[in-house]
């Protein structure tokens, strides 16, 4: 039973639990993307800010046309600018999550060895 459990432990630590950690990490990464809606913001990058636009109205008047065109353009530029801030925050956040997740995963992989090492080092320091 003991040998069987030892094999079982190795399988659990390096396969099952690792898979679970990766899955949880994946969920957190998904959450980051969803929270900042990076893809949606990229897709609607040049949409007018808060859908604020002005109607060109009936008839053609070049000055009015240019004025409304420039106003709508400002709304789009403003939208793109504000969205780019959120996209940047989202991307930085994702990178941070990737980094922290990698550290944690690495820590998990070496944890059995780390337990032995800290135990031996602790003994060494004490005696």
């Amino acid at each position: 039973m003991q040998t069987l459990l030892l094999f079982r432990y190795v399988k659990w630590h390096y396969l099952e639990a690792s898979k679970e950690i990766l899955k949880g990490w994946g969920n957190i990464l998904w959450f980051g993307f969803n929270y900042f809606s990076v893809l949606l913001l990229i897709r609607t990058f040049f949409s007018p800010w808060k859908k604020i636009t002005w109607d060109y109205g009936r008839g053609f008047d070049i000055s009015r046309y240019l004025f409304i065109f420039s106003s709508n353009l400002v709304s789009r530029v403003l939208g793109a600018f504000v969205r780019s801030l959120l996209i940047a925050t989202g991307v930085v956040g994702q990178l941070a999550l990737l980094f922290l997740g990698s550290i944690f995963f690495l820590f998990w992989l070496v944890l059995p060895a780390l337990i032995v090492a800290t135990f031996l080092y602790g003994i060494f320091l004490l005696f």
Partner: peptide
Amino acid sequence: FWLKKNLRRYGTIGKSWTSGY
């Protein structure tokens, strides 16, 4: 906390940036 079910509770902030006032 890492389950999608629980993470969804925090909602999104980006989605409202694509909608109108």
